[in-house]
Design a protein around this nucleic acid. Structure first.
Lengths: 215, 215
DNA sequence: GACGCTGCGACTGTATACAAACGCAGCGGA
DNA sequence: TCCGCTGCGTTTGTATACAGTCGCAGCGTC
């Protein structure tokens, strides 16, 4: 009887989810000071559940708490971004290989559809980022390894404020879509090695662009 | 200007720290239902900062939140424990190799002293567990990779309630101490490969015992 | 006897209210 | 002119108080 995730909390859960999204989308920017009453007003709640959500995000590394001085959106330096991608390269390919084992025909179909939805977004950076996240997460879900999934989620949330800049720039749309297609094909063929290679190339591509842009 | 960790929160920080220790030490056991007022009373605080600390622990996976039904100490099944050790094996050896690069003479000395302190605990399971944690963490600190350190901390916190049973049983004291000595020697020699091998053996040993005990 | 309903008790979730800490503007002195 | 101090305003941190939800015991019904 595992009592693992269920990150669903009464209201702190939804609040944290919305804050995560605001951070991902750049509504709240790295380094930005968060005034509790202000945020609470915008969210339509009091400071109590807001603070609970913020403490959750702090544990995920998305927010830094400075006692008696407020909370700020976490800011990653170049070294930390590089480290983050190293972690992704250590976890994601391994999890992808597991995903091949748990992949059924209808999963392949769902992924193909997800890749298609992303392609349909055209140059809409926001839509592409959302669909991109869903696509990758869906692959990792197939591995049925909840702890790994959790950690990868944390990593993806941490990096998104930075990778969005790249997505927004609109470069490499075709290449990214092609790489996604390659992943789907690898899963359909049950070829773990090919999937791993595609993931590695994908993450390394993201790393290079993010680090270049972040200078 | 990184605004990374500083997990230090005004009071939620210390409270979370104490709760983590209670979970590690088995004062709070996996699956146990946590009554907020009760806990708050024992800690000498009100429910507000306690809840903030609990939400932090929930984000770390140490606690599961069931909306309107209370929080329970997270319980890991056999599959999750196996997964956890897989993650450790994926992260710790890599970080250890980095540690070699950042290791100075006085660091080696400090580690030797830490290993010695652990040995001095004799069969005191509690003392050994504490010193053991400090020893390993000190190695990983040398790598100066804050994100990785954070994740490994999470993993170690998650596994401790289970590995303690093994430590408590008192088996393999000599072997563990010898492995620690090997790590110190590898660091002193600047031999990344040897350190990696020692870590892998160490973690695999822990895995085998924990999984065997957990059945 | 088993099932469903109802009301109570206990606990969680949240708003309000207050206490404490920080930071800055303004003043005084060197 | 620059430095340090003081006092106020703003913001965070926490306790109290109340509203909402859940679970169970007890009753009634089929």
């Amino acid at each position: 009887m595992d009592t693992l995730p269920d990150v669903t909390r009464a209201s702190a859960g939804p609040i944290a989810e919305r804050l995560r999204e605001w951070i991902r989308r750049g509504v709240l920017r790295p380094g930005q000071h968060l005034v509790q009453e202000e945020l609470a007003g915008e969210l339509g709640v009091s400071r109590i559940p807001l603070r609970e959500a913020l403490h959750g995000l702090a544990a995920e590394g998305l927010i830094a708490v400075q006692p008696h001085r407020g909370m700020v959106v976490a800011e990653l330096g170049r070294a930390e971004l590089a480290e983050l991608f190293e972690l992704r390269l250590r976890l994601e390919p391994a999890l992808a290989e597991e995903a091949v084992r748990g992949c059924r025909a209808r999963d392949v179909e769902a992924l193909r559809a997800a890749a298609e939805r992303m392609r349909e977004q055209g140059a809409d950076a926001e839509g592409r980022a959302v669909e991109n996240y869903r696509f990758h997460r869906r692959i990792y879900e197939l591995a049925e390894q909840p702890l790994s999934l959790r950690f990868i989620d944390q990593l993806l949330h941490l990096v998104e404020p930075y990778s969005r800049r790249w997505v927004r720039s609109g470069h490499d749309l075709a290449r990214i879509d092609a790489e996604h297609d390659a992943m789907v094909a690898a899963l359909a063929a049950g070829d773990a090695g090919a999937l791993r290679a595609a993931i590695v190339a994908h993450v390394e591509g993201a790393r290079d662009h993010v680090l270049a842009a972040h200078g």
